[in-house]
């Protein structure tokens, strides 16, 4: 019962903290846009160059011109070669999730751009957790200060956890899907049965991934809240916490995942299709970025609700208390303080 109430309370507290930090969310969103923009501009340039002064451009501007798409896909290089129909509407997240579970990995042309994006996340993580754990504005300087303090710690953590992720995404994935799954379906003549096995394999593969992810998140939270310098210690602390509060942790994780699922369902309904036009482009960008915002908000909520659960469970509530005011250090301020304290006023 206590686990449930802890999870419920942490869910509410965590989401409240995220939703009451719009500048934080906007800042993160802006950072992801800036990290992605160079690659997007490269794609834009490649499309424009390929179309040149051709009349085909007006059809491409209006929607999908399949003939040109196929020509472009045959000619495109680097990032532009990744342009496909899966960028249309809600196909984008579905394609990304499908690629993630079927063949984890980033297209080679995008490795650098994705690495930059991930680097931005690692850098911001410390400040984000600090801000969300305190539950109150901390100012830009304090935010980036926390980012800087925890960046190299989280970099070390990422290397350690990254090794676990690699094991899961590479050899374990191959063993499961190229080995076990193929053996399971070898003599099947029913596609439906094969799909059931595939879903089971997805679940088996995702389980350790989720476990590592959860432990890593709580390790980061405890590293920030408890100002831990050792990331191995943080991982141990995160593991202990998850083990001792597994019901609450699981409930929280599922609740947040459900929110993401609902958000996706809404996006599925409203995502714009392939037709072009100026106002449609605005709609594409607005609705598309709203989806990205939702993903960011949900990710922050995972961190925020985790922090709230740790604080509720381990009496770290004082972490959220505002710091004592610091009297500004200047002669005028000192004079005012003296006057207030000793009743001495400066002669005018």
């Amino acid at each position: 019962m206590r686990s449930t109430s802890d999870a419920t309370g942490a869910f509410g507290t965590g989401w409240r903290r995220v939703l009451s930090a719009p500048r934080l969310v906007a800042g993160v969103w802006l950072a992801t846009v800036l990290a992605a923009l160079p690659a997007a501009l490269a794609v834009k340039s490649a499309i424009a160059t390929d179309l040149g002064a051709s009349l085909v451009a007006s059809r491409v501007a209006a929607g999908v011109d399949t003939g040109w798409w196929q020509e472009f896909q045959a000619r495109a290089q680097a990032e532009a070669a990744t342009l496909s129909s899966t960028v249309i509407g809600a196909a984008a997240p579905v394609a990304n999730w499908s690629q993630f579970v079927d063949a984890p990995g980033v297209p080679p042309a995008l490795c650098v751009a994705v690495a930059v994006g991930l680097g931005v996340w690692v850098f911001l993580s410390g400040g984000l957790i600090d801000r969300l754990a305190r539950g109150r504005p901390i100012g830009t300087r304090a935010f980036f200060g926390a980012c800087g303090v925890f960046f190299f710690r989280f970099l070390r953590l990422t290397v350690i956890v990254g090794a676990a992720y690699w094991l899961i995404a590479s050899p374990f994935h191959r063993l499961l899907f190229d080995g076990v799954y193929r053996w399971l379906i070898r003599d099947l003549s029913s596609e439906r049965a094969a799909f059931v096995w595939r879903v089971i394999c997805y679940a088996i593969w995702l389980a350790p991934l989720v476990v590592v992810n959860v432990i890593a998140d709580y390790a980061k939270v405890r590293a920030v809240i408890e100002d831990r310098r050792s990331m191995l210690g943080a991982l141990a602390a995160g593991t202990r916490f998850v083990r001792r509060h597994r019901i609450a942790v699981s409930a929280l994780y599922l609740a947040n995942a459900l929110v993401l699922a609902v958000a996706f369902a809404v996006y599925l309904l409203v995502a714009p299709g392939s037709h072009g036009g100026d106002w449609r482009l605005l709609a594409v960008l607005a609705i598309g970025q709203a989806w990205i915002l939702m993903r960011i908000v949900t990710r922050l909520a995972f961190l925020s609700t985790s922090a709230a659960l740790v604080q509720r469970s381990l009496a770290h509530a004082e972490y959220a208390a505002p710091p004592p005011p610091v009297w500004p250090d200047s002669p005028a301020a000192e004079a005012i303080e003296n006057a207030a304290r000793f009743g001495v006023y400066p002669r005018v």
Binding site: A40, I47, L83, T86, Q289, W291
Partner: peptide
């Protein structure tokens, strides 16, 4: 038109 859509896909990635 298409770089805008690609941007959303890439951010999601």
């Amino acid at each position: 038109q298409w770089a805008g859509r690609w941007l959303v896909w890439f951010q999601d990635l």
